[in-house]
Computed example of a mutant assay.
Amino acid sequence: MRARRPQVGVVLTAQHRAGRLAFAREHQDWQIRHWLPVLFTDESRFTLSTCDRRDRVWRRRGEHSAACNILQHDRFGGGSVMVWGGISLGGRTALHVLARGSLIAIRYRDEILRPLVRPYAGAVGPGFLLMQDNARPHVAGVCQQFLQEEGIDARDWPARSPDLNPIEHI
């Protein structure tokens, strides 16, 4: 046996498990035709400078200070960038880089829903379904109101269930 880092998972309460089970049961009989108009979306933050101390080097005795064995990093971090994207069986959205600042509901509506999701929904046509997680900007009133006004159906997603969303694996 060899020492390994443990897998990391989310903490699930009984309520989380019930929500996941209900979602799975609701969609267990869906066929490809049901999934065709579904757009799975998510945003991710990428660190521009790694300093998580998980990198490893292979070295021989006496090579401790060799330049190839020194991982350089900025003590104060190197910043990060947040990107948003969507995938479906029939295509994908453009990858949108969220420059500076946090994602708030107004930005989500103005930078993502209006210019990216609405045209995609129009191209898919009737039956379009938006799958997004339960992040605060997504479920905020201004975003829900916008989706309702545009006639875009957004599916409720079970809390703490990123593994059920295929975009999480991309």
Rank of each mutant, 00 (worst) to 15 (best):
L130V: 02
P115V: 05
S65V: 09
P119G: 05
F40I: 04
L48K: 11
A94Q: 15
R109A: 03
T93L: 08
R136W: 01
T47V: 10
P126D: 11
A66M: 12
R59W: 06
H96V: 15
D55K: 15
G125M: 11
R107N: 10
G122L: 12
L113R: 07
V57K: 10
V97P: 00
L113A: 01
R54W: 08
F128C: 04
G86C: 05
T41L: 09
A121Y: 02
G79Y: 05
Y120T: 11
R114C: 12
D133I: 10
P115S: 03
L130C: 02
G91R: 05
V142D: 11
A135R: 10
R92H: 11
R60E: 00
M82V: 04
A135Q: 03
T47N: 14
D110E: 11
A94S: 14
D55M: 15
W84Q: 01
D55G: 11
R56F: 07
V117P: 05
G77D: 04
I106N: 09
G85W: 04
R75D: 00
F146T: 01
V142F: 00
T50F: 13
R109T: 06
I104K: 15
G141F: 10
G127E: 03
L95V: 14
D110R: 07
W58I: 08
W84L: 08
I87F: 10
V142N: 05
R45K: 14
G125W: 11
A94F: 03
R109F: 01
G62A: 05
L98R: 00
Q72M: 02
S80P: 01
Q72D: 06
A66L: 14
S80G: 09
R45A: 09
L89I: 12
R114W: 03
T47L: 12
L48V: 02
I106K: 15
R109L: 09
A140L: 03
G141L: 15
G101D: 02
D42Y: 03
Y108P: 04
A94N: 15
L98S: 07
I70K: 13
T50S: 15
G79M: 08
V117W: 08
H73V: 09
Q144E: 10
S65N: 14
R107W: 00
G90N: 13
P119C: 02
L71I: 14
R61W: 02
G90Q: 14
R118M: 00
G77R: 10
D52F: 00
M131Q: 13
R53Y: 13
N69T: 04
S80F: 04
Y108N: 06
G78H: 02
H96P: 06
L147S: 01
T50W: 12
F76L: 14
G91N: 04
D55Y: 06
L147I: 03
L130R: 04
G86W: 03
L71C: 12
F40C: 01
